[in-house]
Design a protein around this nucleic acid. Structure first.
Lengths: 128, 128
DNA sequence: CCCATGTATGAATGTATGCTCATATGTTAC
DNA sequence: GTAACATATGAGCATACATTCATACATGGG
């Protein structure tokens, strides 16, 4: 966690535009914190996985314990097809895992980090 | 952080389908953790704000200090118009704040929580 | 074996969204 | 004023994606 030490709120008037006067016109100092394109894409993908209301609600459902598709469908008040499609998406995104038992399929959150992100996002969205 | 105590990985076979046997056919116990539709929508919106590679890169840029549009544009290697459009979106989403100075406009992260979310998401995306 | 139940999936559709191009607005310098 | 620079914005386009409908697949009960 403490890998990236960055004070967020200096709000210094230290723009690189000023630096460019010292460095020369095209010699802009690109902030070292700029993430690589590939990294950015992966990170965006993670957030995108959580960027849909239905998926958010599914995650909240699974925070407590695993649920089968049928129950989730009823809890969400949506069509079974829609839920299955989302669960498929979420499986591809490694958000959930499926366990088959007879004709039921039970879904669980794949990773506790997902729950953590969910909760932190929730905290932020409430203090907005 | 410790507001919601949920063990994520009991993987108990405690689905409500089983409970429904006890409760009656349509008497499914909906997990209390299921968030309200409005809450879910807001939360999804927060994550959606971070769900685009360009926005992610912009956030990473602004982690260190404020930057003007021009510098950001060069750092990102994108068209000025594209960056301005994104910054506009991000302003609407309360991700960034603008400060005007002469012909420059400097952007900062609006809230330190954004940086926190960013870092936590980054951590998750890397351990995937 | 047949039927009900639980789940998955493909096609179609509507909508959201990110980018580009062109252009408008605002500011500084000459 | 006029030119150069910095930023914003609207229209158009292409793509991504969430849902619905119809249907297929799988399993268990009678």
């Amino acid at each position: 966690m403490g890998t990236m030490e960055t004070r967020l709120f200096p709000a210094q008037r230290s723009d690189v535009c000023r630096d460019s006067v010292l460095l020369g016109p095209s010699e802009h100092a690109i902030p070292a914190s700029l993430v690589d394109t590939a990294i950015a894409a992966r990170l965006a993908r993670v957030f995108q996985a959580l960027s849909d209301p239905t998926r958010v609600r599914i995650i909240s459902l699974l925070l407590e314990h695993e649920l089968c598709v049928h129950t989730s469908t009823e809890a969400l008040g949506m069509q079974q097809s829609a839920v299955s499609h989302q669960l498929r998406t979420m499986r591809d995104m490694r958000l959930v895992r499926a366990r088959k038992d007879g004709r039921h399929v039970y879904y669980t959150l794949d990773d506790r980090h997902i729950g953590d992100l969910f909760r932190q996002g929730l905290a932020h969205s409430q203090h907005l």
